[in-house]
Amino acid sequence: MRIEHANITVNNVEASVAFYLQLMGGRVRWEGTNSSGRRAAHIGDDRTYLSLFEAANTSRAPEDYSVTGFNHLGFEVDDLAAYRETLLAMGVEIKGEEDYEPGRRLYFYDPDGIEIELVEY
């Protein structure tokens, strides 16, 4: 079993597509509207993708590890330092960096306040 996709609700599909493509590369696999008639897009590759649904009402994702729910998305990368430079060039503030077995990690928020973790093993 593997994770095929993660579905996140965002404030602006176009802005999120641009953010994630600049960060991760890949391509737009599909775009259109979801079953609620809101804009949506899938970005990634042939095996794994992010499904982005546009919110009906704009807001910021909550950050609360003390309650049940979604905490963050984690992506494995080959060169954490290169991604750090990409994030800084994009104007993204690094929330934290940790170096412990089995890898080094970097944390930041996407444009909607969703926490993202990059890890290099």
Rank of each mutant, 00 (worst) to 15 (best):
K95H: 15
A41E: 02
G96P: 12
E98L: 14
F70W: 05
T58M: 09
S51R: 08
I94Q: 03
V17N: 02
P62V: 07
N12V: 04
N12T: 08
R105T: 12
P102D: 07
A18I: 07
A41V: 01
T48W: 07
A40P: 11
N71W: 12
L106K: 08
I114Q: 02
A40F: 05
L118W: 05
A55H: 08
E85T: 15
G32K: 00
E101M: 08
G96E: 12
G113L: 06
T86N: 10
R27N: 07
G26N: 03
E93S: 14
R60A: 13
A89I: 12
E4D: 14
G69E: 02
V119L: 12
A40S: 11
E4W: 08
V67P: 09
E120W: 04
I116H: 03
E117L: 01
D110I: 01
T48I: 10
G113K: 06
E14R: 14
V28Y: 04
I3G: 06
V17T: 05
E98M: 13
R47P: 12
S59I: 09
Y20V: 01
Y83I: 07
E101C: 07
V28G: 04
S36I: 11
S35R: 13
E4T: 11
A55M: 07
E101I: 09
R2A: 13
F108D: 06
K95N: 14
A15T: 13
L106S: 09
Y20Q: 02
G26I: 00
F108R: 03
K95S: 15
F19N: 01
I43T: 01
T33N: 15
D46Q: 12
G91L: 00
V92C: 01
G91R: 01
M24G: 08
L21D: 10
R105Y: 12
T86M: 05
A6L: 15
E117Y: 04
A41G: 02
V92S: 01
V67F: 05
H5Y: 04
Y109I: 08
A15E: 14
T48C: 09
S66E: 11
L87W: 09
R29Q: 11
F108G: 05
S16D: 06
L52N: 02
A89R: 15
F53R: 07
S35M: 13
L88F: 12
G113R: 06
Q22R: 08
